[in-house]
């Protein structure tokens, strides 16, 4: 480079030009190959473009399958879903299972009705609802009543939600099977209205 500050810079080079050599064909082949690879990669690693799928899972079904399906654990999880989202028992009986004494919703936690070894009475309550006063854990509750779920929930759902409330909040009673629910549903098929607590107490638990 020129060190003499008084001399003007070197004469200017002309602006660059381009040649017109063709792009090699193999480059286009490579584009196609890479595009093909890319589609395969997205297929196997893209999780089906599902917002719920995170690596290392590859599809929503795989994630779903991971959650327990068999055994009491699965019934518990399904029952929790019924409690919270499907039937929304949570609204009255609360997430803590303590109900609301002020609004006369009885608790499920430590409730002798829930904890009974044979679930006949609670199944009846869920199927046909309840009306009038009821004594739970020594307290009396006189709510407007619990709606019947006979026509809204299936046997499996009722069994699951009862399994759930019988294992949550410190409760520890045996799970409820859908067959038990079906048996009672058939037995009480003709019943018109909600149960009264006194009526229920007359029904033997084993029925």
């Amino acid at each position: 480079m020129n060190l003499d500050p008084n001399k003007s810079p070197a004469p200017q080079e002309p602006e660059p030009t381009t040649g017109s050599a063709p792009a090699p064909v193999w480059l286009f082949v490579l584009v196609a190959l890479l595009a093909f690879w890319g589609m395969g990669f997205l297929d196997s690693h893209g999780g089906g473009f599902d917002a719920r799928v995170y690596a290392p899972y590859n599809s929503a079904k795989e994630v779903e399958d991971e959650w327990p399906k068999s055994g009491a654990g699965a019934a518990f999880a399904r029952g929790e879903l019924v409690y919270r989202e499907v039937a929304r028992c949570i609204l009255c009986h609360q997430p803590t299972g303590l109900g609301s004494p002020g609004q006369q919703y009885p608790p499920l936690a430590k409730s002798e009705w829930v904890l009974a070894q044979e679930p006949g009475r609670v199944i009846r309550i869920v199927l046909n609802g309840l009306q009038g006063p009821i004594t739970v854990t020594g307290q009396q509750f006189n709510s407007n009543g619990m709606v019947p779920w006979r026509d809204t929930l299936t046997d499996q759902q009722i069994a699951d939600v009862l399994t759930y409330i019988r294992s949550e909040w410190g409760n520890n009673a045996p799970e409820v099977k859908p067959e038990q629910v079906k048996a009672i549903r058939d037995k009480t098929a003709g019943r018109p209205g909600q149960w009264l607590a006194d009526e229920l107490l007359k029904v033997l638990e084993t029925e």
């Binding site: 959650w67 999880a77 879903l81 409690y83 919270r84 989202e85 997430p95 949550e168």
Partner: peptide
């Protein structure tokens, strides 16, 4: 979202 472990929250 539904917290699948702790029912309370």
């Amino acid at each position: 979202t539904t917290n699948l472990v702790n029912a309370a929250q």
